[in-house]
């Protein structure tokens, strides 16, 4: 599953994705980390929406009307689904949605294609990156969701 933040292409395993949502009626919540955009109502479930660009400290974003919310599966959903048990990456128990600029395509990537050492000049903090994949025309950054979703306790 790929998506764009600005012109950069990012990817996560599609097995972690529950759905893509265009209802962006997000309720702001104050007193929370700034990368938390707010909450939204997904058919009666409250989803916490994370502004991925802010989370990755990524300022190269575009104001597009194609913004989307990638709703991730919860840890529970992952565990009850056998096919995703042996995934390297995982999510957390909360319902989280990732707010991204634009949705890309679904691409088949072989695990072997992922280059583990990220390039040094990456704009993104290394710990959030699982690896990169060289596609024909550009670089696909595979995110380490476990790190991305990790909550930093204040004062750390």
């Amino acid at each position: 599953m790929t998506f764009y933040l600005g012109q950069h292409l990012f990817g996560i395993s599609i097995l972690l994705v529950r759905e893509i949502n265009q209802n962006l009626d997000i309720t702001r919540v104050s007193k929370v980390p700034d990368y938390i955009k707010g909450v939204l109502n997904l058919r009666g479930q409250v989803v916490t929406v994370m502004d991925l660009a802010k989370r990755l400290d990524f300022d190269d974003v575009e104001d597009s009307d194609q913004a989307n919310c990638i709703v991730l599966k919860t840890l529970n959903e992952l565990e009850s689904n056998e096919t995703s048990v042996d995934l390297e990456d995982s999510t957390i128990a909360d319902k989280i949605g990732l707010y991204v600029d634009r949705i890309g395509d679904v691409q088949d990537i072989e695990t072997s294609e992922i280059i583990k050492t990220p390039t040094q000049d990456s704009k993104v903090d290394k710990r959030f990156i699982r690896g990169v994949v060289r596609l024909e025309d550009q670089l696909l950054i595979i995110l380490n969701l476990k790190e991305v979703l990790k909550l930093e306790i204040k004062g750390e």
Partner: peptide
């Protein structure tokens, strides 16, 4: 509904509702 761990830190929410 229970709140996400991200909100607990804020200390001023006890839950969320629709």
């Amino acid at each position: 509904k229970p709140i996400s761990t991200f909100f607990k830190e804020a200390g001023c929410y006890s839950g969320v509702t629709i």
